[in-house]
Design a protein around this nucleic acid. Structure first.
Lengths: 160, 160
DNA sequence: CGCCCCATGTAATTTTATAACATCACGCGG
DNA sequence: CCGCGTGATGTTATAAAATTACATGGGGCG
C-alpha cells in the first residue's frame, strides 16, 4: 500500500505536474479539459486539503468564472468521474487525486485538526473487506475508505 | 471478519432483541432510553436499509412524536454516539447497529439496487489501512468503510 | 447551412443539517 | 419544601450541500 503521506514537498511542481498529467490524459481520451475544469483542479491542487463545493465556487466567482452551484458541481463531477479528483464523503468535500492516471482504489487519511488529506493506494478486493464481501455473496463495485485521526504534524501540536 | 450478511431472518425477533439489548445497555450505563429514541431505533430496526433523517422524521410526525428536524437528529445523534446506530456517509442516512454492545469497528456493504446494508466487524488497526497509516505516521481514531455494490438477491434480478 | 453534442449560464428548489432559544421533568443538597 | 443544575424536548429560523429544469452558445460534421 503506497501512500504519499504528509511529508512537505514542492507545491508548484506538484500543481504543474498534476495539471500536466490530467491534460495529457484528456488529450489521449478525447476529454475536454475546459478552463473551468482546469481552474477547479488547480484550486484543489493548491491545497492539500479537502475543499467544499461552495468554497470552490466562491473562488470561481471572484475570478468571474461562474457563480452558480451547478458550475462548481459540474466541474467536480467531471473530475471525479474521470479519476482526477475524489470526494471525501465524511466531509462533503473534494480533493485532487495524487495518482492521476493510475488504477484507482484509494483510501484516505484525514487529519481532523488541519483537514489535510493523504491518499493511499490499496488492492481493491483483498483484505478483510473483500473476504467479508465474498462470505456474504456481495459484489463490491466501489468502496469508500476514509480514516479520520491526526497527522504527524498535528500530533506534535496537540502534545504541546 | 464476521458479517450478518443478507440472509433472510425473523424480523420481529430481530427488532425485539435489538431493542432489548439497547435497553439493557442504557440501564447499565445510566443512559436515558426515552420514547423518541426508542421509537427511532424501532423504525431503523424495522428496515434493513438506511433511512434518511427526514424519512424518520416523517414517521415520527405521523405518530405525533415530534415534527421538527432537531427531534430526529437529536435521537439519531444519541443512537450513533452510543453505538446503537450508524451513519452511512455515502447515503447521508442511518441504520440500526446489528451488534449493539460489542466493540465497534464496523464496515458496511451497501446494495445500490435495494439499499439493504450489511454490517461487518473488522479489526481496527490491522490490514492495509493500518499499515498505510503507520507508514505515514498517522494515528487513526475512526474509520469509515463503506463498500457499494450488489447484494446476492439483486445480482440475480439484474442477471434476469 | 442545419444538426447534434457537449459545455455553460442561470433561476429556482430540494435535501440535509444546525443554531438559538424557551420549556419541562427529574434528582439532589440545603 | 425550595432552589438549582442537568439533560431532554419543543419550536423557529437559518445554514449548508446538492440538484432540477430550462435557456444559450460553440464546434464538428454531413
Amino acid at each position: 500500500m503506497d501512500s504519499i503521506g504528509f511529508a512537505p514537498h514542492d507545491h508548484s511542481s506538484c500543481i504543474q505536474d498534476g495539471i500536466a498529467a490530467v491534460d495529457a490524459q484528456c488529450r489521449a481520451e478525447g476529454l475536454q479539459f475546459t478552463p473551468v475544469r482546469r481552474r477547479v483542479l488547480e484550486i484543489l491542487l493548491q491545497e492539500h486539503r479537502a475543499l467544499g463545493a461552495y468554497e470552490i465556487l466562491d473562488r470561481l466567482r471572484e475570478e468571474g468564472l461562474g457563480s452558480q452551484p451547478p458550475v462548481a458541481y459540474r466541474a467536480l463531477d467531471f473530475l471525479v468521474k474521470n479519476g482526477f479528483a475524489h470526494k471525501i464523503e465524511r466531509l462533503n468535500a473534494f480533493i485532487a487525486c495524487t495518482h492521476p492516471g493510475e488504477s484507482h482504489a484509494p483510501a484516505f487519511l484525514i487529519c481532523r485538526a488541519c483537514d489535510a488529506v493523504a491518499e493511499a493506494q490499496r488492492e481493491p478486493t483483498q483484505g478483510q473487506l473483500g473476504q467479508a464481501a465474498r462470505d456474504a455473496g456481495f459484489v463490491i463495485e466501489r468502496a469508500v475508505i476514509e480514516a479520520e485521526g491526526l497527522c504527524p504534524k498535528c500530533q506534535h501540536k496537540s502534545a504541546a
